[in-house]
C-alpha cells in the first residue's frame, strides 16, 4: 500500500472522517480489508476503484447503515458503531441506487425526509425552493420522482440529502449512468458545497471526476492501494509516458512489449501508451521500425486514468516496480 502523507496528518480529532482498520466480511469475501482513512474538513475526497473494490461497502459503513466486522470509523469524532445517533444528523448519504419514492412528487419526497430528519418547519419550504432552484429543479415540484430523467433524479436525491445541512456528504457513485452534461452540472453543485465548507466523500468510477477532487484514494480488493492529491498520485507513476499513434495499434502494442526499459504498455482506443524508464522517444520509434511498423511517438503528461491503470499494473507486476512507487511519496 502506498500512503502519500501519513506522517503529515494532524491529530485525529480534527478530521471530518476517520477510519481505523475498518473491515467488513460478507461470508468468505473480505469486501473491505483494514482501511485507514483521515479526511480533513472541507475536502472533496474521491474514492476510486473498479467495481467490487469495496467502495460501496466502505461508504455504507461510514453512513452507519452497515456494521463493520472489525475496526471503527468516526465522523467528526463520533463513532459509527457506538454513537450512530450522533453521526447520522451530521451526514447526508446518497446510496448508489436511487433511493427515493418514485410515486411521490419532488416536493413530497423532500418534505417527507426533511420531516423525518427534523428540519424545522419554518423556513423549510424556502430552503427546499433555494436548493431546487440551484439545481434547476424548481419547475418540477409536482413531478413524480420516478418520472424524472436520470440526472434530475440524482440532483433531487442530493437535494433531499442536503435539506438538513449535513457537514459530511457521503456520495456513492452519484453520477454513474448520468449523461455528461448532467455529470458536469452535478460537479458544479459539489464545487459550490465545497466552497461552503462541506466535506464530501464521493465514490466514482470516472477518472476525469477524480481530477476535480482535493484528495483521492484508490481502492482495490478492499484495500487502499494509493492515496494523495491528484498531483501526488500522478507523480507516483515512474518513468516517462509516450503516446504512439500507429496504423495498426494492436501490432504496435505487441511489438512494444519487448521494448528495452519498458515499465508498462496499454492500448487506449487507437492509442498505445508506453511507460518507459527513461525519456527515449527514439528507442520507441526504433522498436516500431524493427517490427516493420510506422507511427508517431509523442511525450504526454500522465492523467489520472493513465496513472491508475499503470499503478494497478505495476502493483500486480511484482516488486521491482513496487519499490519504485513506494519511495515516491509527496
Amino acid at each position: 500500500m502506498t500512503t502519500a502523507s501519513v506522517a503529515a496528518e494532524p491529530a485525529a480529532t480534527n478530521a471530518a472522517l476517520e477510519a481505523d482498520g475498518l473491515s467488513r466480511r460478507f461470508g468468505d469475501v473480505l469486501a473491505v480489508d483494514g482501511v485507514d482513512l483521515r479526511i480533513q474538513p472541507g475536502a472533496v475526497f474521491g474514492l476510486l476503484g473498479p467495481d467490487g473494490a469495496g467502495k460501496s461497502t466502505l461508504i455504507r459503513m461510514l453512513a452507519t447503515v452497515l456494521r463493520p466486522s472489525a475496526g471503527d470509523a468516526r465522523v467528526h469524532g463520533c463513532s459509527v458503531t457506538r454513537q450512530p445517533g450522533r453521526v447520522t444528523p451530521r451526514i447526508g448519504y446518497m446510496s448508489q441506487r436511487f433511493a427515493l419514492y418514485p410515486d411521490l412528487s419532488v416536493e413530497e419526497n423532500i418534505e417527507f425526509f426533511a420531516t423525518l430528519r427534523g428540519v424545522p418547519a419554518t423556513g423549510r419550504r424556502e430552503r427546499m425552493l433555494a436548493l431546487l432552484r440551484g439545481m434547476g429543479l424548481d419547475d418540477f415540484l409536482d413531478r413524480q420522482a420516478g418520472r424524472l430523467s436520470g440526472g434530475m433524479k440524482q440532483k433531487l436525491f442530493l437535494a433531499v440529502t442536503l435539506m438538513h445541512a449535513p457537514d459530511v456528504l457521503l456520495l456513492d457513485e452519484p453520477t454513474t449512468g448520468v449523461d455528461p452534461v448532467s455529470r458536469r452540472e452535478f460537479w458544479r453543485i459539489l464545487a459550490g458545497l465545497h466552497r461552503q465548507g462541506t466535506t464530501v466523500l464521493v465514490a466514482t468510477p470516472y477518472m476525469d471526476e477524480a481530477e476535480r477532487c482535493t484528495d483521492v484514494a484508490f481502492l482495490d480488493g478492499g484495500r487502499v492501494r494509493h492515496r494523495g492529491s491528484p498531483a501526488e498520485i500522478k507523480a507516483l507513476v515512474p518513468g516517462v509516458l509516450f503516446e504512439v499513434r500507429a496504423s495498426d495499434p494492436r501490432a504496435a502494442l505487441a511489438a512494444l512489449r519487448s521494448l528495452p526499459g519498458l515499465l508498462a504498455v496499454h492500448l487506449y482506443g487507437d492509442v498505445v501508451r508506453v511507460l518507459c524508464e527513461s525519456d527515449a522517444p527514439h528507442a520507441v520509434g526504433v522498436r516500431l521500425a524493427e517490427a516493420g511498423l510506422d507511427g508517431q511517438v509523442r511525450r504526454t503528461p500522465v492523467d489520472m486514468e493513465t496513472a491508475f491503470a499503470f499503478l494497478a499494473e505495476l502493483g500486480r507486476g511484482g516488486d521491482s516496480s513496487g519499490s519504485a512507487t513506494g519511495g515516491k511519496a509527496s
Binding site: R60, I91, S95, F98, A99, L116
Partner: peptide, 11 residues
C-alpha cells in the same frame, strides 16, 4: 427501493 437506508439514518 433502498429507502430503508434513508429511514435508518434518520432519527
Amino acid at each position: 427501493q433502498g429507502t430503508d437506508e434513508q429511514l435508518a439514518i434518520s432519527p
